[in-house]
Design a protein around this nucleic acid. Structure first.
Lengths: 210, 210
DNA sequence: AACTTGACATACGGATCGTATGTCAGTATC
DNA sequence: GATACTGACATACGATCCGTATGTCAAGTT
């Protein structure tokens, strides 16, 4: 029981991140008030500035948490795929589906890049990109994917996926355009495959909804 | 000379948009002060709120102007391509290169989506997307591109291109990663082509720098 | 048991946005 | 051609909101 201090501090950090996550998702970064946010967590701005330095610091912590959750979920889904190529596709589709969550959209896709800059230079190193990059590297080593720059491929794939999600969520009937986007993503990704038209007929996949 | 009123008003609008473009590019949307911005244009906030409603309105006008410029430039470059497939690739590469401009990055790619929401629902209708979509539709009609949803394809391609540009510009030596990104983009896009590996050996293309 | 540390609360200053009101050039009406 | 009116723009004001500087009290130390 020597560290009761660190324990409550950790709890307060978690409370603030949770409150920030909620406020940023509902009101957007700039419209979210630090006074309201901290009061909602049962604390004051003093706690916030002590723990995170400034408003950006809290956003960075929130983004880091969500990003980690997304990456681990994508890996979890990818692990159930048949081979590594299907795994890459499954992870990409998983990103599309996860990005339909308003929380992910608002915080990670819109406000995150605008406030914190390019995702590839975030303190979290953007776990999502890392996961995709490793998958591409495996496939290149196996000769399944053409020998492209792994980082470039990962950026393009995740960019396409996340942008597709933005489009889906903004559309009138998301559930109608989602399959179109997923099919187009599979076809597009097949450009990296050495076997032509590899993923064309895979649309009947049972997609686990987020 | 019956309309001296409308004339000066049009000039003032142009001045404000120009000043906004400069301020938003240099300081970012939220850090740009309306007082400084309008003073820089030789006016006051009164003019701004009368013409554009609020700060978002000015950003929308600025984004619309830049977006239009980008689209016309992409079409101009695309028109010089040999066939329609090369045209699609050339336009995509043109977007990547244009997105290296800090003004485009900051205003159109980062602050624009964060403040105004999804680009496909902007009042400008996002001219860039329209151009790409039409190119895809032509290619599908010609049987050069697989029969995918044109809008989905356009969204994925532009998403990949713009995201690649974000990555390039944030990297340490942009001129080093640009060819990697362009090559990966060509290979990725070949996934939409009915002929496999269509664009693989085209990296020696003379790229007109922005 | 007194002292020190540091996590957090409170108070304050500076800055910014949006609105409400004022003003004057340009235009229409007689 | 003089007067009334419209509206484009300037000015003044109130309301937040952020970040810092200072204060306070519990937790750990000697």
């Amino acid at each position: 029981m020597a560290n009761k201090r660190a324990e409550t501090m950790e709890q307060n950090r978690a409370k603030l991140i949770a409150a920030g996550r909620k406020a940023f998702a509902e009101k957007g970064y700039s419209a979210a008030s630090m006074d309201d946010l901290t009061a909602d967590a049962g604390l004051t701005r003093g706690a916030l500035y002590h723990n995170f330095g400034d408003k950006r610091g809290l956003l960075a912590a929130v983004v880091d948490q969500i990003d980690s959750e997304m990456a681990s979920r994508a890996q979890e889904i990818g692990a159930r795929a048949g081979d590594d190529w299907q795994r890459l596709l499954a992870e990409g589709v998983a990103y599309i589906e996860m990005a339909l969550d308003p929380e992910v959209q608002r915080i990670v896709l819109l406000d995150g890049p605008a406030v914190l800059g390019d995702p590839s230079q975030w303190p979290s190193q953007n776990s999502c990109l890392q996961v995709t990059k490793r998958a591409v590297e495996r496939l290149i080593a196996q000769g399944v994917v053409k020998p492209v720059d792994a980082e470039a491929a990962a950026r393009l794939l995740s960019g396409a996926a996340l942008n597709a999600a933005l489009w889906i969520a903004a559309s009138d009937n998301p559930l109608d355009v989602l399959p179109k986007a997923v099919e187009a993503f599979r076809i597009l990704a097949s450009g990296f495959s050495v076997k032509a038209g590899d993923a064309a007929g895979q649309t009947a996949d049972p997609l686990p909804l987020a």
